[in-house]
Design a protein around this nucleic acid. Structure first.
Lengths: 233, 233
DNA sequence: CCAAAAGTGTTCTTGTTACACCCATGA
DNA sequence: TCATGGGTGTAACAAGAACACTTTTGG
């Protein structure tokens, strides 16, 4: 096999920022490390890129190993490559962020990795440059969610409009007007009425909707100013 | 020195998509390769990441080597990591895109690298996955320019409003209303009247403005819906 | 004095915001 | 029957789009 003469082959890691929503708070899936380095500290889920593995596939593998989930929203964020970012050895890290439906995760896989869902507001200090990674992922999530309909990725299969509203309120740390929100969402024709009602609610049971996946595909590629009322940081 | 036990160290390259504007067209700075592999074909400017070099610094080095420019708008786009993307050896490539002021480049440095400014509309076929890189960079440029005031990065130090309008028209491949454009730009208070006039113009000479760099810093971080009239792909 | 490009003002339309009332549910 | 949260409508307002006229310049 032919090789480039350039000598510097470098360790390539991947780290995943995994966002979830439990109906109340925006959460991060974090690892309480029971392995070296930095045993006992908190970190993102990560791994190394294998020789015969596409980058995207590696991110998917890491996400699957931890959550048992495939078919999530998974997007490359940025590559972090400061020389000293990993004190063990020079390593660059390609960072992905994922939006997952907490309901569908594999509890055992998560336990096996010593991982926990932590409220974003209560995020502990993370190792290396993982804090900066999370910060940037949140910025990107806010960016994306303002232009595309990705809030749905955090919802269960069937959900009410108030639940969806809560997602957006948590992402932007703000309050939205119930009536305007509802009208805007309905005007997109992204929701299909399932005819069912939310049985968990204590008071009036809201209508359960499901996503119009066909329309949704358009909205993912099309640019849509989803919430002009929101200001991005 | 301690090392991770993971065996797979990989070659890390960087590629730069360099956008410029000559007053008429959006252009790309491309290399007609007089070296292997793929000698004689067109490619982006690239290089390898050195052992003791931050990723961002490497991108800046590569841009400087080619254009003699520092202090440009330079942003990481995405990392491309398909196993077979480089036929010589498994290499992942961290891609940056830059917006440069064509007037200020170092002609000799560009000649030495056998590089040429090519109209985006006339882009030749590029090697490896460089076509996909350019495609994505253009998408990102459109994205960014709709939300932030980065059109200025492509302008010379002094410019007229119609010239600036042309930049946006070229980026989005569309026509804008002169009157609405002007009003919108002026309302941002991003421009300072230099008192001078454009002497190059054949007919009525437009006012030359310069950028209010202080205001501009705010607009770079703040979210501003710059051109709702434009639709992003 | 005419063609070509630059500069400015006004109306119309659309989308966003703010706000009020009614309905369903369980305690 | 009352407190809580869900569903729908309407009026006021701001922002964007469409459009017309005047000015400067060189030939």
């Amino acid at each position: 096999m032919i090789h480039y003469t350039h000598p510097n082959r470098i360790l390539v890691a991947l780290d995943c920022i995994i966002f979830g929503f439990d109906g109340e708070e925006l959460k991060l899936l974090l690892i309480k490390r029971n392995f070296d380095p930095e045993r006992g500290k908190w970190s993102l889920m990560g791994g190394f890129l294998n020789e015969q593995e596409d980058l995207e596939a590696a991110a998917q593998r890491i996400l699957y190993d931890l959550t048992g989930l495939t078919n999530n929203y998974l997007e490359q964020l940025q590559t972090f490559g400061a020389v000293k970012r990993d004190p063990v050895e020079r390593t660059i890290s390609v960072v992905y962020y994922a939006l997952v439906n907490i309901q569908e995760q594999d509890i055992n896989a998560i336990k096996a990795h010593n991982a926990y869902w932590i409220n974003l507001a209560e995020k502990p200090d993370l190792i290396f440059d993982h804090n900066a990674m999370v910060e940037q992922a949140l910025r990107q999530l806010r960016y994306k969610a303002a232009l595309h309909a990705i809030g749905f990725e955090l919802m269960p299969d069937k959900f009410t409009i108030p639940q969806l509203q809560k997602v957006y309120e948590v992402i932007y740390n703000t309050q939205l007007d119930r009536r305007n929100f509802s009208r805007k969402i309905m005007s997109t024709e992204l929701l299909i009425d399932t005819g069912e009602k939310d049985t968990n609610s204590v008071t009036k049971k809201g209508k359960l909707y499901k996503l119009n996946t066909e329309k949704y595909q358009q909205y993912l590629t099309d640019y849509v100013s989803f919430f002009p009322e929101l200001t991005l940081s």
